[in-house]
Design a protein around this nucleic acid. Structure first.
Lengths: 159, 159
DNA sequence: TATTGTTATACTCTATAACTATA
DNA sequence: TATAGTTATAGAGTATAACAATA
């Protein structure tokens, strides 16, 4: 089916000897997912991380708070698979930049509602637009149907 | 353009409030790839890492050396996107366990050829079989065509 | 007693700089 | 001078244990 892009065979003294491109690693999903993750995190760092001063997790927190106000540390922690102790640090950084504020939960004194400030909303909008441009460019050669199926298949992963 | 995935509104006292499952994060490839990577690394740790004492990179080194004898540190480093200084540590661990051996390159005294021992080959075969079983299970609900297309699309990523 | 947020800490991965020996 | 391997180290990300406040 897929032509599998064989590429030119390498000469023995070629500068690009047998790499992982030829390997059975190529057919392991775990390997390809890891490579894609590395590539996308590097692109994120260059396109969003440096210009906006946001890590992927910080960006995700802004997006989630932009959709549902009054999430708690715990909810963010679970949604993003970040340990509660580490989420405190993430939220602390965003709070110091006045991108989010806190209000106590009136019904349960243990938890704290987090909320985007206007600056937080503005940064979220800019960053999100840039992320979408970035992904469009990275998948420029891939038709939208294949890209949609990629998302669909990844979501079916059992873990 | 994008319909912004409204989803059902959550009750305030719902046990499953708006998580990333409802979020626009769901439609970002970078986010889904990262989730898949985390899931597959956890599964790898449980199924291969602990029983065989191998990290994903160590496993990949064994696979590459199993296919092309006499690779160098530099070649492994480039193929697996691991810094040369860190590859030294990876190879050092495998060497201490006598899974690989070293022979000097007779044509260039600077580089060193790495080679699987018999124990290294045996471990590689066992680990690789287990990895394939693991992936089959994790993609049990996904037809083989979709799984093949997943690999194909991931490989098309531009970075 | 259990849960939320928090602090402190350790551990792994990754990145960078500098050194050696060979070319 | 350039390259392969190596050492040491610093940083980021992640994981764990313990604690205070609240339920």
């Amino acid at each position: 089916m897929s032509k599998d892009a064989p590429g030119a065979a390498n000469n023995a003294d070629d500068a690009t000897p047998s790499t992982s491109d030829d390997s059975v690693l190529r057919s392991l999903v775990g390997y390809q997912v890891r490579r894609a993750d590395i590539a996308m995190r590097q692109a994120f760092a260059r396109r969003i991380g440096t210009p906006f001063g946001l890590t992927p997790v910080e960006f995700s927190v802004l997006v989630l708070l932009g959709e549902s106000a009054q999430l708690t540390h715990k909810q963010l922690s679970e949604a993003l698979a970040v340990a509660p102790s580490n989420m405190v640090l993430v939220v602390g950084r965003l709070r110091k930049r006045e991108l989010i504020t806190r209000t106590r939960n009136p019904d349960d004194g243990r938890s704290i509602f987090l909320l985007l400030t206007e600056a937080g909303q503005a940064l979220r909008d800019q960053a999100r637009a840039e992320v979408e441009r970035m992904e469009d460019e990275m998948f420029a050669g891939v038709d939208r149907q294949a890209r949609a199926q990629l998302l669909h298949t990844l979501r079916q992963l059992r873990f």
